[in-house]
Design a protein around this nucleic acid. Structure first.
Lengths: 141, 141
DNA sequence: CTCGAATGATTGCAATTAGAATAGTTCTAG
DNA sequence: CTAGAACTATTCTAATTGCAATCATTCGAG
């Protein structure tokens, strides 16, 4: 009985390690692809997540990082001419991050690179769907 | 057809975000629990992974970080008296990291804390097993 | 209204992390 | 043997990241 609980706790820890390992693997994958475009890993993630105009806080949430970090990354992308901060319609506190034409084009190229040899490729489509469902259930509270 | 591929690529990106999000969530969970014991998040992860005597490289791999970082974390744990570097029997290059009695006791307390409200708790045991299998298949190359 | 709490972004700072270079050790081809 | 490649740990440095504080704006109770 107590063995059962102990085994369960051990499995939980292993699972944590696996999730962390896969996350690092994905980050490394992004890092090398982004580097070929002159971007850092974080910039790559930001570009990947910028599916459309969004607020800085929204970007931070999608990147799972602090807003201050998103500010830093947005600064860099802005310096490089890939991103602009527009005033947000309807909320003067917020700013709307929007890709420039150059940024949009760069994003397309990055997405093509990221699609090659994805760390998730070893999984079949069905398995990826199953993983997606499990993660959604785990992440959403 | 091309739509199908596009949808697939999009799902892949979403999946990357989910994995990253869950990893950050787990790290945050470790961070708060470790903090109550006077440890940083990395120290917590290190302690969690130190299931027994192991080499520094092995610890780095289990933590999914660079060896230089593992050195840094081991230094801290050693300063605090939780860890010792022993000469590795049979390989003079390597060092065997081994927990002191205080370290072993601290590890037990940490594991108890980590078992409470695990970010993976929303998943049933069966779901956790399924997740484990999927992650193993994805991580192992 | 209006005042205090909450929100969005930014800044400064401290801590963590990765990456390259280095030193010592082990392995292996010849 | 032995010279060179590979491996283990460490150090140093630069870059990334999180956290607390701040400013401007918005929301909400009374």
């Amino acid at each position: 009985m107590s063995d059962e609980r102990e085994t369960r706790a051990q499995a939980d820890r292993e699972l944590c390690g696996l999730v962390n390992g896969l996350a690092k693997q994905i980050e490394a994958h992004v890092r090398v692809r982004a580097a070929t475009l002159g971007l850092t890993a974080s910039q790559g993630v930001a570009l990947r997540e910028l599916t459309g105009p969004m607020t800085l806080r929204e970007l931070a949430e999608r990147m799972s990082c602090e807003p201050s970090n998103a500010t830093f990354v947005a600064d860099r992308l802005e310096e490089q001419g890939y991103l602009e901060r527009h005033p947000h319609p309807g909320n003067r506190r917020a700013k709307q991050l929007v890709l420039t034409p150059a940024g949009a084009e760069l994003r397309e190229r990055l997405l093509e690179l990221l699609a090659e040899d994805s760390p998730l490729a070893p999984l079949s489509h069905d398995e990826q769907d199953a993983l997606q469902r499990l993660l959604v259930r785990a992440v959403v509270r």
